[in-house]
Design a protein around this nucleic acid. Structure first.
Lengths: 161, 161
DNA sequence: GTTCGTGCAAAAACTTTGCATTATC
DNA sequence: GATAATGCAAAGTTTTTGCACGAAC
C-alpha cells in the first residue's frame, strides 16, 4: 500500500510531515520508530482538527501490533517540540492537540454549550498583542487566546447560558 | 479580634466580600460555615494575587481546627460561581485562582522563565475580541488571553528561550 | 553493538466523591 | 429538626515513570 493511499486529509501531506519529523529526530539523535510513524499517520487519518491523547489511544485499541498509551503520550510530546503539533488547554482537564505544521497561526472560539471549536485569525489583534507585551517590558514568544461563548447553532437553539 | 485587623491587603474589603458571599449563599440555600469564612479570610491574608488550591491547603496545615483539602476544593468552586474568584489554567497542570470581585477585568502576561505573572488591560483589545466573536456568529461570554514570553527581568539576565 | 524506544504496570499529581458525623439555618 | 457541609480516606482522571526487553541506527 502506497503511503499516499491512506491520506484522508488532502490538505496535509504525510510525506512532508514525515520528512520534517525525520529531520528533527535526526538532529536530536532520536529514532524514527514504526510507532512514531503510525501515530503521525493516524493523526492525519482521524481528520479531527482537535484531538486528545486519549482519542489517539482509542484509535489504536483494536490495532495490532498495539501502540501503547505510554508511547502515545511520549510521542505527542516529541511532535510538539519541532512544532508539528500544537498543544492547547481549553478549560477541560485534558490537553488538546492540533496539527500545526503547514497551517497558519490562529486562535480559538470555544462554544461552552456544545464544545465546538472555531478558529480565527485577526491581523490587528496579533499586532496589538505584541504591542501590549512590549509595553510591559515583555518579550513575547507565543500566546493563547480563547474566546468562550455560544456558537451560532447553540444560540439559535435558544441556549442562553 | 476585630474582623478588620486581619486584613493584609488594604485594597480588599473582607466584610464586603463576606456580605456578597452570604447573599449568594442565601439565594442558593447554602450555608455560611466557619470553614468557608476562614477560607475567604485566608485568601485575603495570603496577599498572593494568584494561588492554587494547594497553596491554600498548605496555609491550613498547622491551623486548628483544620480545614480539609476536600473543603478547600469544594469552597473554591463555590467562590467561583458568584464571581468572587476567577479560575485560570496557565499551562501548568493545576488551576490557579485569583480574587475577581471588586477588581477590574484584565488578562495576563506569563514569563516562561521565572513564572511571574503580569496583568494587563487594553480597551482596544477587548473591543476587538468582541468584534471577532460576533463576526463569527458567536455570542461571547468571556475570554482568556495569555501572552507567554520573557519578562524584563529574565530578559535582562540574558535568558533567551 | 550501542543507544534509544516500547510496553506494561505502577505511581504521580491533582481533583472529586461516598459516607458517617457535625454544623447551620 | 431538616438540610447542607465537613473530614477522612478512597477512588477518579489524566499524565508520567521505572524497568526489562526489543528495535533502530
Amino acid at each position: 500500500m502506497a503511503r499516499s493511499s491512506i491520506r484522508k486529509n488532502p490538505n496535509m501531506d504525510l510525506d512532508k510531515l514525515l520528512d520534517k519529523f525525520e529531520d528533527y529526530l535526526q538532529r536530536k539523535s532520536l529514532k524514527l520508530t514504526s510507532q512514531r510513524r503510525k501515530i503521525l499517520e493516524k493523526i492525519l487519518e482521524m481528520d479531527k482538527t482537535h484531538f486528545t491523547a486519549d482519542d489517539l489511544v482509542d484509535e489504536f485499541r483494536d490495532e495490532r501490533p498495539r501502540v501503547s498509551k505510554a508511547t502515545v503520550y511520549r510521542t505527542l510530546s516529541v511532535l510538539v517540540e519541532p512544532g508539528i503539533l500544537e498543544e492547547h488547554q481549553f478549560g477541560d482537564s485534558h490537553k488538546v492537540y492540533e496539527l500545526s505544521e503547514g497551517r497558519p497561526h490562529h486562535d480559538h472560539l470555544i462554544c461552552t454549550s456544545c464544545g465546538s471549536i472555531l478558529e480565527f485569525y485577526n491581523e490587528a489583534m496579533e499586532a496589538l498583542q505584541d504591542k501590549v507585551a512590549v509595553n510591559h517590558g515583555f518579550h513575547p514568544t507565543h500566546h493563547s487566546q480563547k474566546i468562550y461563548g455560544l456558537c451560532a447553532t447553540c444560540w439559535g437553539k435558544g441556549v442562553r447560558s
